[in-house]
Design a protein around this nucleic acid. Structure first.
Lengths: 151, 151
DNA sequence: CCAGTTTTTCCCACTTTTTCCCACTTCTCT
DNA sequence: AGAGAAGTGGGAAAAAGTGGGAAAAACTGG
């Protein structure tokens, strides 16, 4: 499981240094082959290639004439780009994806189980503070599991 | 079960000395491996690694396209950082978490069963006094169990 | 299809940050 | 008052971050 928050800087060439603590695992689990794609919340998602392939299959099995499904396919599969870590543990972010997520220099990489999310730092902070203020989760639709969740 | 309130000081490097009375138990129960994450009330949560893993699993099983679930995943799993006590029983608080909770020097560590809460001392005092003034709990929504609670 | 030019890739080397541990100070209990 | 334990600061070694440059690849126009 990937977890945790990491502050990162993109360098002038648009490269992203993967935090050291994840590198070893990524080299083992996917021979440093990653897939980067977009998320509906204007951040990027970074998957180890094998994990991505599972997701991609699930997505492409959805019915083509369901609007929501078709959108997800276009967004996620459509933007998915394979990248590989270089010897120093960096990956080159494709310019279209970098622009999509508004990434310039200061970025935040968030562990989310089987994947990472990559946000522009400022956008991340704003979003997060927004979520905290809409404090009361109970106003949202909760899945049954969540109502009994004890942390 | 962890309980009790402890006043602590962060040192200049942002390190937190775990109170001695918990150290032995933490060394045994989790080989000094802790996970620190955030809470919606702007404090930090400190779990022994095994305790945390249970929660993390529950969270990541929730559906990705449920808003409330996704938020909790991003907040809790997204900020969860593994740390280890050093030889002197201290842990280094990652700067993003320290900033999130507004921790500077004076902190309060609160035992809460399977975890600890870490608050900036001033914020803790204000919150607590606030709760006391909202005296009447019966104005809040109580889960069924609480309505029959006898203490 | 080839040569010149630009872009991309890959790796080296320097700088900065982090980590780990030692030693001093302060507090507490006898 | 002294001894032991806990708290606190600091520094050196190691690791990670960062920029740049040469070689390879790709593109373009003749």
């Amino acid at each position: 499981m990937f977890r945790g928050v990491n502050r990162l800087n993109l360098d002038v060439k648009g490269r992203l240094a993967i935090p050291t603590r994840y590198r070893e695992r990524l080299r083992e689990s996917c021979a440093s082959e990653l897939v980067i794609t977009v998320d509906t919340d204007r951040c990027l998602l970074i998957y180890p290639l094998p994990e991505w392939q599972v997701i991609e299959q699930k997505l492409m099995r959805l019915p083509s004439y369901n609007k929501a499904a078709r959108r997800l396919q276009r967004l996620l599969v459509g933007h998915a780009t394979e990248v590989e870590m270089d010897g120093q543990g960096r990956v080159l972010l494709p310019p279209p994806l970098r622009e999509f997520a508004g990434l310039t220099k200061h970025a935040v990489m968030i562990g989310q189980g089987n994947k990472f999310e990559l946000w522009d730092e400022q956008r991340w902070n704003e979003q997060r503070d927004g979520w905290l203020e809409e404090a009361d989760l109970s106003e949202l639709d909760l899945p049954a599991d969540l109502e009994t969740l004890s942390i």
